[in-house]
């Protein structure tokens, strides 16, 4: 049996997907990237191989993606996460025309064709606004987990606008609002709105084409998803584990390149 692996080394987490020759995903693993990409890859790859019940020598082709792709020496090919998210999203939701990927360090809006090939894309500037890191810092200001942070915003009755999308200034603004005893859920909804507005300006650049699929860790945030769906006026496709879509795309590309 032939197996392929995709490894997505992101700023926060490293994901691995093992694929069989028939395109069936046999295992996946997610681990924190930390400060050593190679160690994170070894950990996540080891877990994924163990879950698949195979050894590394059984992998016919490995593709690395994500910002840490350049540091991994043993892979067969390195491909950007933009191409990989396009292929992964198309595989999971074949009607996808637009992919919104919000990761820890950057966010992207990608337009794909009916084969999952990238037609156009845009990426955020070198700034944490509109990324998972922004939400992580804000959740920290409330001492909430990211899951609770997202869910709490859905209870808001009176959204409080946040005037800055700069992570540093927004945090100061949030601390002032907390000191004024404003309801947490209202502040958090305002923060989510700031992120969504930032993403929305990127969506405007690429345009909405076909069904929209969201990938990356922020797709788990119910508050962001709800506001994005409100903007789009429709539902967004989200896989049960949106963080592995890039690694899945990398594994699919590994198979294509091998064949």
């Amino acid at each position: 049996m032939t197996y392929f692996a995709g490894i997505d080394i992101g700023s926060l987490t490293t994901e691995v997907v093992i694929l069989k020759g028939n395109d069936r995903m046999v295992s996946s693993a997610i681990d924190l990237t930390g400060t050593d990409c190679n160690e994170a890859v070894e950990q996540a790859l080891g877990q994924a191989l163990s879950r698949a019940g195979i050894s590394r020598s059984q992998l016919s082709f490995i593709v690395a993606t994500g910002y840490g792709r350049i540091t991994i020496p043993f892979v067969d090919k390195k491909i950007t996460e933009i191409s990989c998210h396009g292929v992964g999203a198309h595989h999971l939701f074949p009607d996808s025309g637009t992919v919104i990927d919000i990761g820890g360090q950057d966010s992207k809006v990608i337009r794909i064709d009916k084969q999952g090939k990238v037609l156009d894309f845009t990426m955020n500037d070198k700034c944490a606004a509109g990324t998972g890191r922004f939400l992580e810092v804000m959740a920290g200001a409330f001492r909430l987990s990211l899951e609770d942070f997202g869910a709490l915003s859905l209870k808001s009755k009176r959204e409080i606008p946040i005037s800055s999308v700069c992570t540093v200034f927004a945090e100061s603004e949030v601390i002032s609002l907390i000191a004024q005893n404003q309801a947490k859920e209202d502040i958090i909804r305002g923060l989510h709105r700031a992120v969504v507005n930032r993403i929305w300006s990127m969506v405007q650049i690429v345009g909405v084409h076909g069904a929209v699929t969201m990938t990356g860790g922020v797709a788990k945030n119910l508050g962001v998803v709800a506001l994005l769906e409100e903007k789009l006026g429709g539902k967004i496709h989200i896989h049960s584990e949106p963080q592995i879509v890039g690694a899945l795309g990398a594994a699919l590309l590994a198979k294509r390149l091998f064949i």
């Binding site: 491909i79 950007t80 933009i82 191409s83 360090q105 950057d106 090939k117 037609l119 894309f121 990426m123």
Partner: peptide, 24 residues
């Protein structure tokens, strides 16, 4: 579209944009 500042080198993110464009 790349928005660059002079003499600042290429960030990993900027390289990714260029590489993704070339893949495209």
């Amino acid at each position: 579209v790349l928005d660059t500042e002079l003499n600042q080198g290429l960030s990993g993110q900027m390289k990714t944009r260029v590489e993704a464009f070339v893949e495209m």
